[in-house]
């Protein structure tokens, strides 16, 4: 019983992390039609910012959390200005490849200027403690991840439905030109989307740091790839789908972890992707997706 609860929390926490990152991707995709492959490097940039702060002697965990989030927002908005604005009106493929290129550049810059090898960064390990809730031992980090995902999801729903900027973002997802006809600055809506996405990346960076205790150039890439898969499961472009897809992915992974004997641990990833591909056979458009064809971007 305790084991089952443990694994349930485990699945929820994994799912929450994927959902958070998937939401960050979906916010930008639904508004800009940009498949942001560089998102993982935004997460990594947040983590490296903390690394640098520690190197110069700023070693307060709370400040590190703030710094990671600020860096996520900054990096995301900056990338939009520098790399994605020139291809804003280009076809989907062009934006996707641009983001992919940016991702390669950033990963290699981290290698070049910091190190190709992981750097230890135990500052936030304190977030990950074992708590006793009644008779159960649970991880504080997992509880925090779950709580944060719920709060962030709720805040996002509130923002998109209750604020003018949020409504403008929803409108822009369907018809960007007409949003501008309302006198709303396009650049502001876009910047807001990227800032929101960067905020989620910063939060994700905090969790990844607390779990791994180290930073590496490719630390975000694999996570983001999984988040993309979550988006595909849920239906690309749908925010609710991204959250749901993240959760489904978390449950698949933990399910495999439980069912597979320890010596097969190496093929967990492989099996996860196989299950996902099988899911897509059943529902090619994703769980909550409406079919979106290539070239629909302008429509």
């Amino acid at each position: 019983m305790e084991y089952a609860l443990q694994q349930l929390l485990n699945a929820l926490a994994f799912g929450a992390e994927y959902a958070l990152v998937a939401l960050g991707l979906a916010v930008v995709f639904s508004i800009m039609g940009l498949v942001n492959f560089a998102y993982g490097e935004i997460i990594a940039a947040s983590a490296y910012a903390v690394l640098l702060a520690v190197a110069v002697g700023l070693a307060a965990p709370l400040a590190a959390v703030g710094l990671a989030i600020a860096m996520g927002i900054l990096a995301s908005v900056l990338l939009e200005r520098v790399a994605f604005r020139p291809v804003r009106r280009a076809p989907l493929t062009t934006g996707l490849l641009t983001a992919f290129g940016v991702s390669i550049v950033l990963q290699n810059l981290f290698q070049l200027f910091i190190s190709p090898r992981p750097q230890a960064l135990p500052l936030l390990n304190g977030l990950n403690q074992t708590l006793m809730v009644g008779p159960y031992a649970v991880s504080s980090l997992q509880l925090m991840q779950l709580a944060t995902a719920i709060v962030a999801g709720g805040a996002l729903v509130w923002f998109l439905n209750r604020t003018t900027l949020g409504i403008a973002m929803r409108a822009a997802a369907g018809d960007f030109a007409t949003v501008r006809l309302q006198g709303i600055r396009a650049d502001r809506v876009v910047a807001a989307a990227f800032a929101l996405s960067g905020l989620l990346a910063g939060i994700a960076a905090v969790f990844v740091l607390a779990r791994r205790g180290s930073v590496a150039p490719d630390m975000g890439f694999m996570l983001v790839l999984k988040a993309f898969v979550a988006c595909v499961i849920g239906g690309f472009g749908s925010l609710a789908g991204a959250a749901l897809g993240g959760m489904v992915l978390g449950f698949i992974e933990v399910g495999l972890l439980v069912l597979l004997p320890a010596e097969y641990g190496g093929i967990k990833e492989t099996l996860t992707y196989c299950i996902v591909i099988a899911l897509l056979l059943l529902r090619p458009e994703g769980l909550m997706g409406t079919r979106r064809e290539l070239g629909d971007k302008e429509a």
Partner: peptide, 21 residues
């Protein structure tokens, strides 16, 4: 059968599956 973006993501997932294998 997948739409463009999903096909791209799955092609990448396929790469990881094979590498893992």
């Amino acid at each position: 059968r997948l739409s463009g973006v999903a096909a791209t993501i799955v092609s990448l997932a396929f790469l990881i599956v094979c590498h893992g294998m």
